[in-house]
């Protein structure tokens, strides 16, 4: 009976029903418990339980893939907080952005979101450079490299669509410069080569009011409809697609035999 009183608070806690229901294996002390800590958690089980030594070294992966994912999660959280305040209309967008730093307590949420977004583009690039330099795209990881390229494009599109939302001069002109190129898409843009061929008799099918640029902007210039379109793309559509590709990316890392390494 006496040893019962000798138990520390921690040990008592570990034996309680509540604790055991949440963390089944107890505080990971033994090898077995540590493996279980990874396998039993929905978040951590993205990882295998054991890895070759080089794969956990910062010097090998530079942690860049992990940081890309961290930034994505980070941006989702700060982005949701921004959505509480921001209204995507020409009337309110700009003033809501001003209010974010002037009226909202601890008003650095916009900064956190913007700088994390710039960082993510950079970190994803560095991740690609690392994967190239270690030759990790070679078989059997060819497909996952392709998934990665798509993720990189999505990351840049996310950043680009978000750039418009503050609705200031910087925003609309950067997006105007970017989307003007769509005008020149072969066959699909009104100033693209071949577009004139898509005509029935005298009637052009591809003109200023029907080309890809119009579809992207929801109008002939960057305006109210563009703002709404970019908002939906930025907050819902692209993150949704990116999440699916990330799921495939992570799954394939495991299925392709885990992190690459010399044989």
């Amino acid at each position: 009976m006496s040893d019962k009183n000798d138990k520390s608070l921690l040990e008592k806690m570990e034996e309680s029903q509540v604790w055991k229901s949440i963390i089944r294996s107890g505080i990971p002390r033994t090898r077995r418990q540590r493996m279980h800590a990874i396998l039993g958690s929905v978040f951590l089980h993205l990882h295998p339980a054991r890895l070759p030594k080089h794969a956990v070294k910062v010097g090998y992966t530079w942690c860049m893939g992990g940081l890309s994912f961290f930034l994505f999660v980070n941006l989702t959280i700060t982005g949701i907080l921004l959505m509480f305040y921001y209204r995507p209309t020409v009337e309110y967008a700009f003033t809501d952005i001003i209010d974010l730093s002037e009226q909202v307590p601890l008003g650095i949420m916009r900064e956190l979101h913007r700088w994390a977004a710039h960082s993510m583009v950079l970190i994803v690039w560095l991740h690609m450079v690392r994967v190239f330099m270690t030759g990790s795209y070679k078989p059997p990881r060819e497909f996952n490299w392709g998934i990665g390229v798509i993720l990189m494009v999505l990351t840049m599109l996310l950043s680009f669509t978000g750039y418009l939302l503050p609705w200031d001069q910087l925003a609309i002109w950067a997006v105007t410069v970017g989307s003007n190129m769509a005008r020149a898409t072969p066959f699909l843009g009104n100033e693209g080569p071949g577009a004139a061929l898509l005509a029935i008799g005298d009637i052009n099918l591809v003109h200023v009011g029907s080309d890809v640029r119009f579809a992207l902007l929801g109008g002939r210039f960057v305006g109210e409809a563009t703002l709404l379109r970019f908002y939906v793309l930025h907050c819902i559509a692209i993150p949704f697609v990116a999440m699916i590709f990330m799921a495939v990316h992570f799954w394939r890392i495991r299925k392709d035999g885990g992190i690459s390494g010399p044989l």
Binding site: I38, L44, L51, C63, G66, P262
Partner: peptide, 22 residues
């Protein structure tokens, strides 16, 4: 980078703490 295939390390704590610090 080469290491013995049998010589593996545990992800908890060896990797999890690096990720946490990063």
């Amino acid at each position: 980078e080469y290491n013995d295939p049998d010589d593996k390390v545990l992800v908890w704590p060896d990797l999890v703490y690096i990720e946490f610090i990063a």
